[in-house]
């Protein structure tokens, strides 16, 4: 026996189910009939098995995320009023310091994330966000450089919207920025709309989901009423947390984006901020309640207390959940760079 024989011992795994192959073919056939425009939205608490619907593209995710996770009732008129940021909030104070700090050289933000892939191998990924709004990605300095060299700008409209919302929060009307961030992927909840408009937005989203089921040849589920009250507030907070932290992990080393992110996070009532220490470095933890992540886990974002750069993003299982999330962590390192250096592999 040698090392290759040992490797082969790892090759036996449970295969996908026959139903999964059918769903995948259906997704292909749907795409063949009508190619789906990609809309990117982080799948914060969504899972296909829970929604019992085949993946037909991220556009469908954006629509189905509401149906799959709410099951709620209709808000008469969504509450959009942001809780005013607490003056003493360490996030607001830090945002002011970040904004006032001298601009660092460079024309781009580089964020290096390290996580463990599902096959337990380490996975490092690089994201460059230029001050012009381009996004380049890679699995290594080499593939990142290749992406820049090919001008393979991977910024989606969603990226532009969350970054614009963050910048608006940094420089302008925080309440408007908050609504823009909440609705960056869709506004099925009708946030910031009149009651009549909100009703229509919800009905349109329901129709979109129904259409998706029809295309897949599946039974169209009964329409669900819009969520209201606490459920609605949790969903709004979920969108805000999800989209805001996405902006941070793409463009952390852009001071304007980071300032806006900190201000927006300070408006979420369901997070708590505490001081901590990471390797001798002053840091802040920003902790969500499990409710705004679907109830199965709580997120803890740790940032540098002096400059607001992300250090790590963790998820801890919720004690009272029947299906608690597993512990997970992504570690971040961010810096200012020039795109020319990235293209030359000098990072």
């Amino acid at each position: 026996m040698d090392e290759m024989d040992l490797m082969k011992k790892l090759s036996d795994v449970p295969s996908p189910s026959p139903e999964a192959y059918d769903r995948a073919r259906t997704a292909l056939q749907t795409a063949m009939v009508e190619p789906v425009n990609t809309v990117v939205r982080p799948k914060r608490w969504f899972s296909w098995p829970r929604a019992s619907v085949a993946a037909v593209g991220a556009a469908a995710v954006a629509a189905a995320v509401v149906m799959g996770t709410t099951g709620g009732s209709v808000p008469a008129g969504p509450s959009t009023a942001a809780p005013p940021p607490v003056v003493e909030s360490p996030l607001v104070k830090l945002a002011s310091e970040v904004k006032a700090a001298a601009a660092l050289p460079g024309d781009s933000s580089l964020v290096i994330g390290t996580k463990t892939a599902p096959d337990n191998t380490p996975y490092v990924y690089y994201t460059v966000y230029t001050d012009k709004g381009q996004v380049f990605k890679g699995d290594s300095a080499k593939t990142l450089a290749a992406s820049v060299a090919k001008n393979d700008d991977q910024a989606h409209p969603y990226d532009a919207r969350v970054m614009a919302a963050a910048r608006q929060a940094a420089n302008g009307d925080l309440e408007k920025a908050r609504i823009a961030m909440i609705t960056a992927s869709n506004n099925a909840l009708g946030v910031g709309l009149s009651p009549a408009e909100a009703d229509k937005a919800w009905a349109d989203a329901q129709a979109e989901v129904a259409e998706m089921f029809r295309k897949l040849g599946k039974k169209v589920p009964d329409p669900k009423p819009r969520p209201t009250g606490e459920e609605l507030e949790n969903l709004i907070d979920n969108h805000l947390w999800s989209n805001t932290t996405y902006a941070l992990f793409v463009g952390a080393a852009n001071a304007e984006v980071r300032t806006g992110v900190l201000k927006l996070l300070s408006t979420i009532k369901a997070v708590t901020v505490a001081e901590t220490d990471v390797d001798g470095q002053r840091a802040l933890t920003i902790t969500t309640s499990p409710e705004i992540l679907g109830g199965d886990g709580a997120a803890v974002l740790t940032i540098n207390a002096d400059n607001g750069l992300p250090i790590r993003d963790e998820v801890f299982p919720a004690k009272n959940s029947p299906q608690p999330s597993k512990y997970a962590v992504v570690k971040y390192k961010s810096s200012r760079v020039t795109l020319a250096d990235v293209a030359a592999g000098k990072i």
Partner: peptide, 11 residues
């Protein structure tokens, strides 16, 4: 694209 809350153990 997967967020941190996916079940990825800390290697």
């Amino acid at each position: 694209s997967e967020p941190a809350e996916e079940p990825t153990p800390d290697l």
